[in-house]
């Protein structure tokens, strides 16, 4: 990430943004990126508007445009209330938003965000995600995060990097499918008159076409929860339902138990790892 922003040189390989190599044309690359590091790079002794004006000029906005641009990002990041406050006196959420405002002020092609929601409360996280979704229309956003649910919510492409090596790069849905291969279904069976016999149910489920494995997860209060896995590429949910109902049991619940991104992540990486997600 820091290599892409020209802050660090690559130790191996090549990196380029919008066709410009980070080593050969760092100035061109820097003009085209907006970067929010883990801690927002703000000067506590400056006012919000003063800071945004400074950064805007630093990024090469002419002094004629700067006032308009600063007002524009203040609007986009809803910073109007704190416009003339010292950044040092702002809350973490506001400071984070000032950081994002700083990154988008010069309307860069690529926006690089390092853990944009870390240390924020849930309301602020939702606000920031909403803001990112609005921005996604005009910018390519690269965001790095350890919070996988965030990736599921907001990213179109996921890149998982483990110890400097790329281990996966795909969309969330494809990644899930590819790793899962077979379908996993969780179903809950009950009956009106007392509890059905677990072994009987299990045998019956195993007889359904395309089932590779049946596991009983839980049994309590006359309800049995099974997890069923299919053979590669088979759709078994309809057959399972029919088979349960035909036997006279109640089918209380049946849903696909997809692999979560957490499971994928664990499968792909070992102990020490970091994930990156991308959104377009």
């Amino acid at each position: 990430m820091r290599v892409l922003t020209c802050f660090l040189p690559p130790s191996a390989g090549k990196a380029s943004i919008a066709g410009f190599d980070v080593l050969e044309h760092p100035m061109e690359v820097k003009k085209r990126i907006g970067y929010l590091p883990e801690t927002p790079p703000v000067y506590p002794e400056m006012e919000v508007i003063e800071y945004l004006t400074f950064v805007g000029q630093l990024k090469g906005i002419s002094s004629a445009d700067i006032k308009r641009k600063a007002d524009e990002v203040i609007g986009r990041c809803s910073l109007g209330d704190v416009r003339a406050k010292l950044i040092g006196k702002l809350s973490k959420g506001y400071r984070q938003r000032v950081g994002i405002a700083q990154a988008i002020i010069h309307n860069p092609d690529v926006l690089i965000l390092d853990e944009p929601t870390s240390g924020l409360d849930p309301k602020q996280i939702i606000e920031i995600r909403e803001l990112l979704r609005q921005l996604a229309g005009d910018h390519t956003i690269i965001l790095s995060t350890h919070i996988l649910s965030e990736v599921e919510h907001s990213c179109e492409r996921v890149i998982i990097i483990s110890q400097g090596k790329l281990v996966a790069q795909d969309s969330v849905a494809n990644l899930t499918n590819r790793l899962r291969g077979s379908e996993a279904v969780s179903l809950e069976v009950g009956s009106a008159d007392g509890r059905p016999d677990p072994t009987e149910v299990q045998v019956r489920l195993e007889q359904v076409n395309g089932v590779s494995r049946v596991m009983m997860k839980e049994s309590k209060d006359g309800r049995l929860i099974f997890e069923v896995e299919s053979l590669q590429g088979r759709q078994i949910r309809a057959d399972l339902a029919r088979s349960v109902v035909n036997a006279g049991w109640n089918l209380n619940e049946l849903h696909a138990a997809g692999l979560s991104l957490e499971d994928i992540f664990l499968q792909l990486t070992t102990a020490e790892s970091k994930s990156e997600g991308g959104q377009k």
Binding site: T5, C6, Y35, P37, P41, L58
Partner: peptide, 14 residues
């Protein structure tokens, strides 16, 4: 110390 150096060093400025 405050990390603002990252802002300066990633801006189009020598």
């Amino acid at each position: 110390r405050t990390g603002t150096i990252e802002l300066l060093m990633t801006s189009p400025i020598r």
